[in-house]
Structure formats: C-alpha cells, structure tokens
Design a protein around this nucleic acid. Structure first.
Lengths: 144, 144
DNA sequence: TAAATATATTTGTCATACTAAATATTTGTA
DNA sequence: TACAAATATTTAGTATGACAAATATATTTA
C-alpha cells in the first residue's frame, strides 16, 4: 500500500473520536444532565455491574487507575456513588451507585441510545461491521 | 438497524484513537524525540505551511485556539518555532520554524511514516477506503 | 516468620480539551 | 469620526489522559 495515503488517517480518527464525544457532551449539557461523558461511562459500567473493584471498573471503562480514581471522586461528591473497603482484601475498594445514581442511569439510558444513533445516518449494517472490525484490528496491531 | 449493537462503537472508537496516539508517543519516547504527538502535529503543519496565523494553524491541526496557544508556547520554549506579529493585522500572530525545528521535522518525518504503517497490518486498501469514508460520514453526521 | 515482592489505590506533574471571560485590535455603522 | 460589533489571541478553571512515585496491604519466599 502507498505510504502517503496514510498520512492523515490518525488525524481523521482522532477528530472523529473527539466529535463523537463533543456531540454527546453537548447533548448532555443541553438536556441539563450535569455529568460528563466520561462520568457517564463509569456510571453505566457500575449500573450494569455493581460490586466492581476500582481496578476492574477502570479496565471495563478503558481508563487508567489514576483517572478512574478522580472520576469516582467526582461521582461521590455528586452523591451518585459510594465507595467501600473490601474487607477480604483491604487494599481494594468497591463501589456502588446510590439510589440517585441508579435513577440517573435509568433515566438517561434511552436518551443516550438515541444520541448514539445519530452518528450512523446514511451508513449501513455492513459499514458498522467493517468499522468495528477495522478498529479492532488496528487496536490489536498496535497492542502487541 | 438494531440499537443495541451500537452500544459500544464509541468506546471502541475512543480506545483505538487513544491506542494510536499511545503507540506513536511511546515510539517517539523510545527514540528520544522529546516531543509529544500533538506537538509533532503542529510542527508538521508549520513545516508544510509557514506563515500561518495561529488561528489557521489551529484549524489545520484540529485544535482549539487555547490549546494551540499552549502547544506553541512549548514549541517556543524548546526553540523549535518563533512567533511574530502580523503588521497588517496586529491582532494576528504568525509562526515559523527555527532551523532546529525544520531539522527536527525533516529527520522525524520518515520515522513517523513508518510508525503509522504498523496500524494497517492485515488490512486492505479497501479497508482503508471504507474506514476513512465511514469516519468522515460520522464526523459530518454529528457536525450539522 | 521476617524480608522481599506484588498488588490496589492515591497523589503529583505535565499535556491536552473545552468553555468562558479578558485583552487588544480591527471593521462596520450611525 | 465615534461607537458598537466582530475578530485573534490569551488567561483561567475544570476534566481527562499518561506516567511516575508514594502508601497501604497481601502474598511469596528464604
């Protein structure tokens, strides 16, 4: 393959990832959700799987531990989650959502799903499959 | 299309964009390049087009103006670029690379091109075309 | 069992992203 | 021409991302 063509794929990739996040964030803000997209990702992961340790949660959300710690700090301040020491391994902390946190996820989920679909207008199922396959391949090529 | 399938495309997109950046950054660091990937993007844009105003440069690099200002500040500190007032419009600043900056871009360019190819192993030209087409479509769907 | 090693989390530092507000300058308009 | 509006840049504040180092606790090993 010609090298020159690849000049800017990482630029387009980066810009599109940013745009997806921006679009979601501005929809959140517009609807008065009062959380960031990253905070949403953590809330959603917790909603689907309570009792995760912070380490497991970080992995599921694709975030490193320092970043996760700070996002969780914010969720605590907002009263959406609580942190507990795991008595079987006192190094570990586990988390669960407060009632308010659960309500927030339940009420936002359908709206988030809607927001997500906007990106796929004018694209086909095949496009979606190709897209995720290619992204996964790139990821694994660079993860060796 | 079924909504559920789209659950995590933004996650994969985000993780892959991060991985591409990390891979490039660790290659830079390993080779002792002493710049970040974002600083590289700005240097490259300047190399290909001197006399850009900061505003134009920001646009070309896909960065907002405050971010660009800070990246440029770092490039100045590193002695890679210089900033000048545009006397035809004293609000504007334009930039150009120092000799050291030009040398840096010239010497890094081929290595960066190599790094970039790694992502495309096991993928075809058609994949590349589909990928960029889909990314562009998503971008424009969300940019309206 | 004491010491070394490993693990989970946090803290610190720097770089980047986004928003809003401040500053300087220019342009448009009454 | 004076004033209002627009534009280019910077500054400030908050959130996130990456990486290194610090802390506390567990596990392994001599």
């Amino acid at each position: 393959m010609l090298n020159e063509k690849f000049d800017r794929y990482s630029f387009i990739l980066d810009q599109t990832a940013k745009k997806v996040k921006q679009f979601a964030q501005s929809s959140f803000t517009e609807k008065g959700f009062d959380i960031t997209v990253d905070q949403w990702a953590v809330l959603k992961a917790l909603y689907e799987n309570e009792q995760l340790s912070q380490k497991e949660l970080a992995k599921r959300c694709g975030k490193d531990q320092p970043t996760l710690t700070r996002i969780v700090d914010i969720l605590l301040k907002k009263g959406l989650a609580e942190r507990f020491i795991d008595e079987t391994d006192r190094r570990s902390l586990y988390l669960h959502l407060t009632e308010e946190g659960k309500l927030k996820v339940a009420s936002l989920s359908p709206i988030v799903a809607e927001i997500r679909m906007k990106a796929w207008e004018k694209l086909t199922e095949k496009d979606f499959e190709d897209f995720t396959r290619i992204l996964n391949t790139i990821y694994h090529n660079l993860n060796a």
